[in-house]
Design a protein around this nucleic acid. Structure first.
Lengths: 186, 186
DNA sequence: TTATACTATGTCAAGACTTACATATGTAAT
DNA sequence: ATTACATATGTAAGTCTTGACATAGTATAA
């Protein structure tokens, strides 16, 4: 089982989805922490089915092309639950911008400022997106009791992480821009 | 040019290093944001040399095996500087733990608590490491003026990012544990 | 009717990355 | 002596991932 396999099982644990649906999910908060293209998803679904983790049924549609709806099996759910509480191997971070920051002394200050201002803006926008989603998430569940076993709670936990991550990222970019401005003045 | 290529050029821009040295650097703050094994580094150095980005000289050593010292060329430095201020393609994040959080409602609360407590501890330790490095970094440069063109400033910028990242990560884990505890009490 | 876009499913080649294999020198401890 | 460890440099097999190629049904608007 690959991590992508678990990611797909996790999404299918909520409700049956097609490969196309799963690819769309990659644009939502979940996907922001584990992205995959459809070219990786379709083969992975085939593998999951071969391993008995999911089954599929062809659904005929009249307003659009037919699709294969994938459903998680008992075995798939058991495998997912087991993985869920297994100690995670450290996932190494890869961030090209930090790499650029490392050698920023070699760059032209004005260009460096432009770069980090642009990055700050990008992450500010992503942060705003998350905050809107979070708002929407809270309103949906404001009346009922909203707990770990509620559907959509996973999104809430994920969003909280995304917001924290982006908030910190924005601050870091702004901090670098500040220093670059001071440096280029002197 | 791959990102790893730029990462190696970035390290070589400070001083000549061997492939082994570069692999060791991957354990320092820089490496935390772009890791690579020696099996990837050696071929990449060969590629960089073929592209005229670096040259190497064999250095004989009597207390240990001989080594190849790689030095960045003018062309390499120019390429690095150009890359430095080029808009970065978003680097997608991959974090298995966030994926697990997404489906945490399916897990046994006690096991989930244990998992996130362990993760919190791990990131708390990483945070402490960074803070020690930062302390060391600040002391080294406390007397002189410490600016973008100072050697070691890149480490400072990188460390600041690492500290922010880990601090936020620890908070997120603690927040999840808190909620899990409340949930399992009820 | 033509173009554009969205839905839907796949394959393939190339590159990135990991794990394991492979070799060799020198130091320090048992 | 032998073992273990750090230094030092590589290769090879296999997996993960991306980007491009490929096909096809339906809807909407110009």
């Amino acid at each position: 089982m690959t991590t992508l396999g678990y990611a797909l099982l996790g999404l299918l644990a909520e409700r049956p989805l097609s490969g196309y649906d799963l690819a769309q999910q990659m644009k939502t908060p979940v996907g922001f922490f584990w992205h995959a293209r459809h070219s990786q998803i379709y083969p992975e679904l085939a593998r999951l089915e071969a391993d008995g983790m999911v089954t599929h049924a062809v659904v005929e549609q009249y307003d659009r092309p037919d699709k294969k709806l994938y459903t998680i099996t008992e075995a798939g759910l058991a495998t997912l639950k087991e993985w869920l509480v297994t100690p995670t191997a450290i996932t190494p971070i890869r961030d090209e911008l930090v790499l650029k920051a490392y050698n920023l002394g070699l760059a032209d200050p004005q260009q460096a400022i432009a770069l980090f201002r642009a990055e700050e803006l990008r992450h500010r926008e992503q942060l705003a997106n998350y905050e809107v989603s979070m708002e929407w998430c809270m309103q949906t569940y404001s009346s009922e009791q909203f707990r770990f076993d509620s559907p959509g709670y996973g999104n809430y936990l994920t969003l909280r992480r995304g917001i924290g991550y982006e908030r910190e990222y924005v601050e870091w970019c702004a901090w670098i821009v500040e220093q670059l401005e001071e440096y280029s003045k002197s």
